[in-house]
Design a protein around this nucleic acid. Sequence first.
DNA 1: TAACCTTTGTTTATTCGCTAGACAAACTTA
DNA 2: TAAGTTTGTCTAGCGAATAAACAAAGGTTA
Lengths: 391, 391
Amino acid sequence: MSQTWNQHVVKKENKALVLNTIKANAPVSRASIAQTTGLNKGTVSSLVSELLNEKLINESGTGESSGGRRPVMLLLNETAGFTISIDLGVNHILGVVTDLRGNIVNERTITFSNEDLEEVLKHLHQLIDELRNEVPESEYGIVGIGVGVPGVVTSDGEILLAPNLGWKKVPLKDILFERYRVPIIVENEANGGAYGEKVYGVGQMADELIYTSISIGIGVGLILDGKLYKGLRGFSGELGHMTIEKDGPDCRCGNKGCWELYASEKTLLEKARENGYKDTNIHELVTAAENGESKAIHLLEELGDYLGIGITNIIHIFNPEQVVVGNTVQIAEKFIMPAIEKRIEKNAIGFNKNDVQLNVAKLQKYSTVMGMAAFNIEHFFEAPDKAVISN
Amino acid sequence: MSQTWNQHVVKKENKALVLNTIKANAPVSRASIAQTTGLNKGTVSSLVSELLNEKLINESGTGESSGGRRPVMLLLNETAGFTISIDLGVNHILGVVTDLRGNIVNERTITFSNEDLEEVLKHLHQLIDELRNEVPESEYGIVGIGVGVPGVVTSDGEILLAPNLGWKKVPLKDILFERYRVPIIVENEANGGAYGEKVYGVGQMADELIYTSISIGIGVGLILDGKLYKGLRGFSGELGHMTIEKDGPDCRCGNKGCWELYASEKTLLEKARENGYKDTNIHELVTAAENGESKAIHLLEELGDYLGIGITNIIHIFNPEQVVVGNTVQIAEKFIMPAIEKRIEKNAIGFNKNDVQLNVAKLQKYSTVMGMAAFNIEHFFEAPDKAVISN
DNA sequence: TAACCTTTGTTTATTCGCTAGACAAACTTA
DNA sequence: TAAGTTTGTCTAGCGAATAAACAAAGGTTA
């Protein structure tokens, strides 16, 4: 058996097409769906009635007449199920409950200092338990739990390495499934952020989008051809460890002159220390810069310049439509973005530079959780009938 | 109208599936196709009979019995049409005629020194004319002409810039279509090489393959998820202009410390000159190295080392299954490949390094032409009925 | 206000491609 | 020679899409 066969496929595809049309254009009538999709009116009618039976969509009264019978408008039944979506950071966990449209209906944060696996898992379980108790009653219940983690994740949802947490070989997907018995998605934090910005953020119009997660280190999520690109084993996007200075200092990864040795929050704070800012953080530096302290301004602009060098490489490598700067450094937007732009303007090849947009993440601290929500929702809609009822 | 609809699609897909099964496993019986594809025997029978009518496949007598009626074996009718596939280099043009299986049935080369557009086009036309006159009679005639060029090509087949030829804005696809009236494909040389190695060369088992074309400069072709990745406008793969030394020398592209300033034939020869090899070329250097001249050996190993730095970046960025080193430098294989491997072994992150294969291009000087042939053939099989009869 | 036109949504008849299973052909084995 | 196997074709039936007719519900115009 290779892959493609028969004609359930056609029905399944068309049903998905109808549902996506409703998602994208709601509220929308059957007639209008038929027109935009090119499907026959009868076909649309029958698929819509199935979707209504499955409680995935709702009728919502009649719309305005355009010179004839008034249309019955259709809406996504966004509260037919909910996701629990989590950004597991190095000193905090952000968890949200979203509906099937990606609206956040609940939110909780836990901060911690002990990064020990056992401890953090306890926090994670507690957070999920709390969120779960607050999820509204619904047809499909919790359709999935997604966790974005700052580390290397296999396609089986095992965290191979999370350097800033000091974790190795944690089968997080299995651990969570064992406990919650709903579909679990574990993904790298930058991949989640990339998808979040693509689906709900600044990249909704872009199919070729590179999301750079700039925080303690650098992670990069690649949206290529509209889909998350993960490489052979899921380890793509290690652009933080792209050499930008061939004889540069050793990185703990084994390579030399890695990008994140020049353009990360960690390096920023080290340099700040050398410049007399003792025991500071990026918030304080931004405040200082906003108050006109030239040292702070210079430090932030230097960070932006180094970011620009790596982003220029990204532009040359991928010819993307959009490059998004996300994660913690975006609070320094005012100082780093012009520096990045200046570097790109100066160094990048015209053909590649002309069409690219450079943006700050729109979802801010929610990029990753929203990406995880999007993964959960997408997974659910691929096979709603198989969803585990667990409410 | 968005995209997907009806059930001709099913038939078309299944027909393509049957044809691909024959291509891959020929000679093969109808019964065996039914088994491997999962399609019903009757369906296979009917699709096969259509393919026979279209002369795309042939029956080739009976095979061995396995305890019952002897099967009728089916073969791709590889001589139902031919491609003209061309590698347009900076001082030569290599042109081949291939059948639909990618067998080279004819080959011609022209060398030139005057890179003037008019002149080169004259040569190109002459070469194509000669090849065309020698194409055997066939059902579908010339199914396409493909040209790989060392430059930036838009999706409309316009050469925006070919720096080493000194060309700008050459609408080569239109020029050739005007003259030959068959499907024309113009593509970057490294993209062609990547696809050639993927379909006919060392990368037949790999869906995540990065092909590095190392010659005067560096071009890179990206095979991601089994398909050529071209970015937003077709300008991806400019990894030759990836900064590997942030404060390095200026490149004519506008950037600094570009990879190809360290790891290209051009740089190799410049360094050779500085080391006393006057007016040499890479062939002579390899010969010298093979004779044990330590200066030559060192120059080649240094080239390999610099290649290794960029390839390490590639491994971190893409997590590929295979990295292929192609184009002219592969004649120095014996000296550069160990140096590349050494650098990767030393610098690359374990997770990404473990699964990656490093190979020299198998098709050698034919990588690009075979890639162009593969594009032509693929394009033909997508819609054989629409092929222009032109023999 | 009535007659007619428009638009929406459902129903019915038809078509198309796949599948299952019967069957014929051709061969092997005992 | 009889029985079993494998290959390939043929026929009936099914599911899903389409086209077209029809019903429902509104607007427009005289």
